[in-house]
Design a protein around this nucleic acid. Sequence first.
DNA 1: AACATGGTTCCGTATGTTGGAACAAAATGG
DNA 2: CCATTTTGTTCCAACATACGGAACCATGTT
Lengths: 260, 260
Amino acid sequence: MDAVASIDKAIDVLFYLHGSSSDCGVTSIARGLEIPKSSVHRLLAALVRGGLVDRTQTGQYRPGVGLLALGLGVLDREPVVEAGHRVLEEFAQRWGETLFLVAARGGDLRVLDKVEGQGFLRAAPRIGSSVPVHATAVGKLYLAFSDESVAVAMENGREAFTRATLTESMALHREIQEIRDLGVAWNREEWISGLFVVAAPIHGPGQMRAAVAMALPASRLPELGEELLATEIRLAAQQISERVSGVRRGSTAMEKHNDD
Amino acid sequence: MDAVASIDKAIDVLFYLHGSSSDCGVTSIARGLEIPKSSVHRLLAALVRGGLVDRTQTGQYRPGVGLLALGLGVLDREPVVEAGHRVLEEFAQRWGETLFLVAARGGDLRVLDKVEGQGFLRAAPRIGSSVPVHATAVGKLYLAFSDESVAVAMENGREAFTRATLTESMALHREIQEIRDLGVAWNREEWISGLFVVAAPIHGPGQMRAAVAMALPASRLPELGEELLATEIRLAAQQISERVSGVRRGSTAMEKHNDD
DNA sequence: AACATGGTTCCGTATGTTGGAACAAAATGG
DNA sequence: CCATTTTGTTCCAACATACGGAACCATGTT
């Protein structure tokens, strides 16, 4: 079967630039990706031409604003983000902790939106990043409520991130059963030490549409209690679900768009 | 000079999906871009592999969450956005109108951030989109304060968008002189009828870093007055400039990133 | 059941990509 | 200031990957 190796390499260049903390030259990209300089130069020229990379006057390269337009366009197609953001803000404000939305996209669980808490120590998930299935609250929610084929496709290995990570099938299966009963999932430092997360499903027609989660330092747990957290996250999920159903497409604002 | 036509086509596919209001099939993309179906299918497979496109279970394609990560990463490199967003919120709240940031990127003027007003009739610029140079407040700011080579490169044609658009060199030159004197630029319905914009430069070391603008319906102008608007937008620009100088890199938040 | 439409795969062909070498420009250090 | 080093850019012969028409498969419609 044919592949288009140039596109694979171009995307490698994009993610390399994305992962670099500063602008990059041709030689440093070539070294980083182990590709000849002339190849990198040609790939960059194509990406600059397409608007996905910007070239500085000194011949350095960085991710281009065209990516911003494309990236934000992805959010435009996520009604759960549009509907849910205000709810995240409200609950983040009320409890001072981070709320975020996760959904299955491209065979992976991805963070779609977040509102961070105000605490000095707080969870700061990166929008667009993926999260493991077996070791997170939202991952286990998906295992509990998704089509089995979806769940199996997403699950790749059961790395023991911390001492609390569930890796045995029996233990994981038992917890998934509990999640189905409770309608809420917990991450009790199973992924990251010190990180406690509670999540609830946002149901849609057919499958699970997304999940909403609240993350807090484990040290705050005794103060708040699991009962209260469960009640709150279920409430947030319900409010988002109701808002999604009522979201209207389009805007009454006076709009003028002039994309490239 | 060599080109990589495959990358050009792949980017065409990305923007085609971006511009489509719903998911697309292979055949509709092929028709829209006038490319054979087998070619489109191969391009899509590469983009799916790279995470820039997601494929639905019914064989439809849409922009992928990988673009979201890349796109938001572009903003991470814009200290003016990080520093300026709170100022935009404050002024938008105070006046009830839309504030936005524009900067020169990739030989073009691009909207980097915005906070919309609350009015029923309000400007709603799209982040990432480009704006014309000769017919907007921020465009004329750049003509006034930028390196001439930058300004010339950005200027492509002088389309008369409305009856108010300045297309003659003498008139435009005179106004640019005034902008230099005042430190503020106006768009008096030169781009879109009914749209009034006032903008001020955000200076940085060397060139103009960005511009901050407030957009309002022309009908509100008599109520507010140009004097007040000029004072306010200069104040906003000054506050952003001060905040940019003081922006700190990095975060104290407990972070865990797990990008693809 | 037949037909239409769209997604996917195949494979012979040739077009386009590749990357080492050379060149040009910029940066560095004495 | 100048020689050297490093990096960005261009060239082009060689090669192999990409191309796209045709066929096949899957789904939807009549």
